[in-house]
Design a protein around this nucleic acid. Sequence first.
DNA 1: TCTGGGGTCCTAGGACCC
DNA 2: TCTGGGGTCCTAGGACCC
Length: 399
Amino acid sequence: MSKNRIIFHIDVNSAYLSWTSVKRLSEGLCDLRDIPAAIGGDEKSRHGVVLAKSILAQRFGVKTGESLFEARQKCPELLVVPADHQYYSETSHKLFELLDDYSPLVERFSIDEGFLDYTGLEGIHGEPMKAAFELKERIKATFGFTVNIGVAPNKILAKMAGELKKPDLVHSLFHHELEEKLWPLPVRELFMVGKSSEKVLLNHGIDTIGKLAKCDQEYIIKLLKSHGLTLWKYANGIDNSPVVPTGTTAAKSFSNSTTLSRDVTSLEEANLVLMRLAQTVCMRMRAEKYECSTISVQVKYSDFTVFSKQTKVKVPTDDTDYIYKTFKNLYEALWNGKPVRLIGVGLNDLTEKDESQMTIADAIASEKHKKLDAVCDKIRNQFGKGAISFGAELSGKKK
DNA sequence: TCTGGGGTCCTAGGACCC
DNA sequence: TCTGGGGTCCTAGGACCC
């Protein structure tokens, strides 16, 4: 790896809210970025959380992830607009296409954040800070939303630079700037310092990133184990991880969960949900040509306590019917009879599907299911997720 | 009508084996 | 008669991210 890297971190400002605003402007509606506003889920179906907020809403203390109920208590005039995930996904795709123009090394970190390795590109786009500024302006002119760009010698510093003052700004964060720009910040603002780490750090008088950086390494490891070492390195701007282009790494898990619009209290109802989850999660896994060896189910009760159960299967599988039956068994073993708020399923221990490894017996046994699954996937892709259901699910719907 | 969904990584404890 | 001990696998739970 080159010693003097230049990494960009590109982060869409209030992504969901900005993207919805762009769409609304084209429809003659007001700009959510100019008022206290939030993108939120549907409260009637118990999805009422803040997914993104405007800077004005943020000034009222509105936070991403909190309930809309709480958000409105802080900001009664808050305008809440529903999310449009399809549109977000399309917009994100276009943004990354533009980034791919700039560098062959672009890593998609989330729907609205990416890293770009600018090392060696000065000859093409010019001096890094100037290039970052031009990129930011080009995104704004092309799409109508703004981004922050962090410019730094590695990913962690680029990310932290991107988190400095927002919106629509380019910040650098080189090693000689740490003391001035990074170290005065509250320790909670360091990437990977969440609620629990913050609590431990504050209890030991470590309230800024600078104090964490100057701590004895062994001391932090005693406090927070291996995570402590990670945080200590981040605070000191140490990170050698490469920018990994999207699509070049293998998936590790697929999961699908749903908060139910009302609590589920019977096995029959739960089974219908498990079927639906099995269909979508298996279809997604098959589309990327994986099989799983670990199958898991998660339950959140109405008191918000969460439990999970998993099992390992001897032969990796992608068979919806088999996986559904496994979900069902796990759920029955897991469920304590109390009202259930959320049901989730997961497929882990993935292996890339290699058809040549199948024995003749396996092939014959699973042939029927595979053909059926393949046909179902095709129809769902063409006509939508609801196009095909299991028999039991249909009869359930009729009730 | 208070609290989403999809991920990755880590740790602790028990089972099991030599 | 006094409960070794290391290694590995599996499971459950938790932290953290966007």
